[in-house]
Design a protein around this nucleic acid. Structure first.
Length: 431
RNA sequence: GGAGAGAUGGCCGAGUGGUCGAAGGCGCUCGCCUGCUAAGCGAGUAGGCGGAUACCCCGCCUCGAGGGUUCGAAUCCCUCUCUCUCCGCCA
């Protein structure tokens, strides 16, 4: 959510930013409502002031035993007028908020302009695409051949876009989660969180999933509860409506969660394999930082996520998203894309974003800047900046491991770094 | 699921219709004092919105949330949420 004052004072800038993301919100309507609201507010506040003053007078007289019927009658009229105005203002506020919640974040200046992923900027490569002396198989074939993945039975149990991990497949999924959590808590300074997987509507609104992306979410019938599409939601909302102390910042959190996505609108895409599921596992990284630190914190966050791929020895590249591919809430975003032989291309395994104060304003996450020595006051609260990134998406990483480290004989070599987490049979997956 | 209790400022806690955004205490900040530390003394210490704007400042709102009664609500009434205790059930 953007600051109303900012929108009021820089409507053109906001409009340009929106268009660069291919978003059109009713900015003009918003500004009209804002105008109306402020003029109504002025009127009603004058009336309320009158009410407060006269009520005290009435009270004072009453203490002397006098009932000022005339003034009480006047107050009755004023009160009903106030009630009318208040109702009107409330309605206007709702309209403003409704629009405001649908206005996307403004891209950072260094974000490249562009409409589609074609215009994303490749920042760097790590490793080189795996070469095979034989015909490599896609991970779903490897997974089913080695009895690690069972798509058919998952289909029976749940439906399409579900998978069941079995045996060492299940073990590897769990191993990846543990490897990542240990790395981020042990070496990168994140605090581990195990959050609820169901959250309420306020939390979904706080991080920006609602109200715009309702159809992408799974909602629990008859309850104000949604299955989380990412741990970003519960973890960012950890500090919703809180005022943090500057000394506490930055706060780093990492969380494993299952993630649930309806994938509405992607029918027919990635129908095979682990790449696009209704439920998948992910280790997430979330940061709360001072505004002036968020640009560097994003770079560090990306590196923390990259470290996982490096440990696993998987070739990847880092892409800086162009304006059209930024998404709704981000001001700047890097994707980590791992080499996936079955698509003969790189596939996203992490998305690292700086939201600046966009989520913090929605969710009311503030901090109190430390007061410089000697200066009397000026300790007004300010919104923190939030960032998050996958560190990483487990299923896609597992797919990448199966595909990149498959052998001609059908077995798969387990990356060195993962072996302590999945002991047995010399680090080879065989049937 | 049944019965009961509660929700007030960073924390504890008073306040049952009027001058209460809220006593008192703790904590914190600044200053004074003391050889240092502790103690002591004085002052300050909620968030939001609107206006004014170099600065000081002014108004309105907020005592879990929403509605109602009233000239006037932290205080009375209704609904909801959350927390706690006991019983039942359950992984």
């Amino acid at each position: 959510m953007l600051d109303l004052k900012y929108l009021r004072e820089n409507p053109e800038e906001a409009r340009r930013a929106m268009e660069s993301k291919g978003e059109a919100a009713e900015l003009d309507a918003l500004l009209e409502w804002d105008e109306k609201r402020r003029s109504r507010l002025k009127e009603v506040e004058t009336l309320k002031n009158r009410r407060n003053v006269v009520s005290k007078e009435i009270g004072a007289k009453k203490a002397e035993g006098i009932n000022d019927e005339e003034k009480m009658e006047e107050m009755r009229r004023i009160s009903s007028q106030i009630k009318e105005y208040d109702a009107e203002i409330k309605e206007i506020n709702n309209k403003i908020l409704e629009i405001q919640l649908r206005i996307p974040n403004i891209p950072d200046p260094e974000v490249p302009a562009g409409d589609t992923e074609e215009e994303n900027e490749i920042v760097r490569y790590w490793g080189t695409p795996t070469q095979f002396s034989f015909n490599p198989r896609p991970h779903w074939e490897i997974g089913e051949a080695l009895n690690l993945l069972d798509f058919n039975r998952a289909g029976k149990i749940s439906g399409s876009r579900f998978v069941l991990y079995s045996g060492r497949g299940a073990q590897m999924e769990r191993a990846l989660i543990n490897l990542m959590l240990d790395l981020h808590t042990g070496e990168h300074g994140y605090r581990e969180i195990f959050p609820p997987f169901l959250v309420n509507g306020d939390s979904m609104t706080g991080t920006g999933q609602l109200p715009k992306f309702t159809e992408d979410m799974f909602k629990v019938e008859d309850y104000d509860l949604y299955l989380i599409p990412t741990a970003e939601v519960p973890v960012t909302n950890l500090h919703r409506e809180e005022i943090l102390q500057e000394e506490e910042l930055p706060l780093y959190y990492t969380a494993y969660s299952a993630c649930f996505r309806a994938e509405a609108g992607s029918h027919g895409r990635d129908t095979r394999g682990l790449v696009r599921q209704h439920q998948f596992n992910k280790v997430e990284l979330v940061k709360f930082v001072r505004p002036e630190d968020s640009p560097q914190e994003l770079e560090k966050l990306v590196q923390d996520a990259e470290r996982v791929l490096q440990l696993l020895n998987l070739p990847y590249r880092v892409a800086l998203m162009c304006t059209g591919d930024l998404g709704f809430a981000a001001a700047k975003k890097y994707d980590l894309e791992v080499w996936l032989p079955s698509s003969d291309n790189y596939r996203e395994v992490s998305s690292c974003s700086n939201f600046r104060d966009f989520q913090a304003r929605r969710a009311g996450i503030r901090y109190r800047p430390a007061v410089p020595e000697g200066s009397g006051g000026g300790k007004k609260t300010a919104f923190v900046h939030t960032l998050n990134g996958s560190g990483l998406a487990i299923g896609r990483v597992l797919a990448a491991i199966l595909e990149n480290f498959q052998q001609e004989d059908g077995t798969v070599i387990v990356p060195e770094a993962l072996r302590p987490y999945m002991p047995g049979r010399e680090g080879v997956l065989s049937g």
